[in-house]
Design a binder for these strands. Structure first.
Length: 507
RNA sequence: GGUCCGUUCGUCUAACGGUUAGGACGCCAGGUUUUCAUCCUGGUAAUAGGGGUUCGAUUCCCCUACGGACUACCA
């Protein structure tokens, strides 16, 4: 069997949303699983929709995800160039060969003419179709005599090249996910293959490029399923039927609210990011949030996307990229669209954070505290990381769970004061401060032991003491164990926080 | 409207003719805990409807309903 070669072929019309990332991911997993090659091709045949920065965004996003390519617009490769606008000259000859073989024809109808016909059809509640039934009544090389066609072409009259769809034929496309999909050719349109601006349309370009780049499997979104028969026909007409790639049309990612496929325009409307990375619209300046900036780990992001439409067939849900590659199979890709669940995404991220080595958490935390203008030594960072990592869902939670290790609380939660600050509280807190002052070994376990012993000796209520002590240390009712906090803060800081609180809340 | 695709707990999904229809997230309850989380245990909740085929249908077929995609000189 030939080497597996798959491609991800986005058009640079804006940021990639999570559906696009998932398509790229499945292609990547399939390629890696089969020891094949993965190619990034940019489909920019529509210059009017070009968005500056989009291509870089796509490359950067996939890089962040850990999805890398063997060939592509950003790294080159044996089939370069990988940007369709750079391949412009390639396509015309294939359109011409179709023309010669009688599988395509020139059409001279203006966009306005066609628009009028469409409107008319609409009025009659019909759909205008440039196809087998109507083409003989339109302005094209099938209806105009040869000399006139030559004259039009020579004088630079705008033209497009359309495929000549056969009238009565059942076209069968075998889809790896859906099985055989059959369509009556008469229902298909004579799609434009070559535009009047000299560029091919997607239909021609993707077939030509997939052929030239020796693509073996086309794994793409379900929105392409209706045009798959057209593509199959093109392979046949171009004489490439024997090397036509296998098709797999992935189910769509749906909007979590209501229905419909997820779109770039959903932005932040849904209350969670739809993009891997933050995106700033170059035209409007509008900013859409990204998973990276929201505090997701790329591994978790990928894990969650992998499970949206595919599952390993076991009950394992936390899967590394290596495991995904080992387990991936198109057979296990579902048929129906799925809605993204932001809650589960958070849970998955939590799993990754909680099980990460302290070193990893410390690195993440260090970035945050440096941003806060704080310096901390590695040992302390590692200690803190171990205490907080299973308390965080997203990376910013790391700071929410640990800021009090670096800053003394400025204010104290009123409701906690109400609940635990009794007349006797200042008294025993002072005694605790004194006890700590004389304390030798200052690690979490010994501090905890001393604290408990002290509480017992004094006959104090445990909850009362611990909660008020917690209040003076962190300013509220949250955080890891009190003894652990004290141990990390150190003797002097812990004691000074007790006295500071006594000054603020009252003796 | 036409063509095509789809339909299992609220959500992601398992069960490729025989299961008390399983798991996960969420939610609820209990437990652990000095707080809040985590964690542990339990609970909640589904085969869209109707016909077939079959000894037996979530599973195969048909119809209906619903949802979606496509229907551009966009991808």
């Amino acid at each position: 069997m030939n080497e597996v070669r798959v491609r991800f072929a986005p058009s640079p019309t804006g940021p990639l949303h999570i559906g696009g990332v998932r398509t790229a991911l499945y292609n990547y997993l399939f390629a890696k699983k089969n020891h094949g090659k993965f190619i990034l091709r940019i489909e920019d045949t529509d210059q009017t929709r070009f968005v500056p920065g989009a291509e870089d965004y796509i490359v950067e996003s996939l890089k962040w995800c850990g999805i890398d390519f063997d060939e592509g617009v950003h790294i080159g490769g044996p089939y370069a160039p990988y940007r369709q606008s750079d391949r412009k000259e390639i396509y015309h000859q294939y359109a011409l060969s179709l023309l010669e073989k009688g599988y395509a024809y020139y059409a001279f109808d203006s966009a306005e003419d066609l628009e009028i016909l469409r409107k008319d059809s609409e009025k009659r509640k019909e759909t205008f179709q440039y196809g087998p039934l109507s083409r003989m009544a339109l302005k094209n090389s099938l209806t105009i005599d040869k000399e006139e066609v030559t004259r039009l072409l020579d004088t630079g009259h705008p033209f497009v090249i359309r495929i000549k769809i056969p009238e009565h034929e059942t076209i069968v496309v075998n889809d790896l996910i859906r099985g055989e999909v059959k369509v009556e050719s008469g229902l298909l349109d004579d799609k434009v293959l070559f535009k009047s601006d000299g560029m091919p349309t997607y239909h021609l370009a993707n077939v030509v490029d997939d052929y030239l780049m020796k693509i073996t499997h086309v794994i793409r979104g379900e929105e392409w399923l209706p045009s798959a028969p057209l593509h199959a026909l093109l392979y046949r007409y171009l004489g490439w039927e024997s090397v036509m790639p296998a098709f797999a049309h992935l189910p769509l990612l749906l909007k979590p609210d209501g229905n419909g496929k997820l779109s770039k325009r959903d932005g932040d409307r849904l209350g969670f990011p739809v993009f891997p990375l933050r995106w700033t619209d170059p035209k409007t300046g509008d900013i859409s949030s990204g998973y990276r900036e929201s505090g997701y780990l790329p591994e978790a992001f990928i894990n969650m996307l992998a499970l949206l439409g595919w599952n390993p067939g076991t009950e394992q849900e936390i899967l590394s990229m290596a495991e995904l590659i080992g387990l991936f199979s198109i057979d296990r890709v579902g048929k129906s669209g799925s809605k993204f669940d932001p809650e589960k995404a958070r849970w998955i991220n939590h799993q990754y954070l909680a099980s990460a080595p302290d070193e990893t958490i410390a690195d993440l935390l260090e970035k945050i505290i440096v941003g806060e203008g704080i310096q901390a030594d590695r040992i302390k960072l590692l200690q803190i990381s171990g205490l907080i990592k299973d308390r965080a869902n997203l990376i910013p939670d790391l700071w929410q769970q640990s800021w009090f290790f670096f800053r003394s609380p400025e204010k104290y939660d009123e409701s906690v004061i109400q609940k635990f600050w009794k007349p006797e509280t200042p008294g025993f807190l002072k005694n605790i401060a004194a006890m700590l002052e004389g304390h030798g070994t200052f690690d979490s376990a010994t501090v905890e032991f001393s604290l408990k012993q002290f509480i017992q000796e004094q006959g104090l209520p445990m909850g009362q003491v611990m909660n008020s002590l917690r209040l003076v240390l962190v300013g509220g009712s949250f955080g890891p164990g009190v003894a652990a906090i004290i141990a990390v803060l150190g003797k002097q800081e812990a004691i000074s926080r007790i006295y500071r609180a006594l000054d603020t809340i009252g003796k």
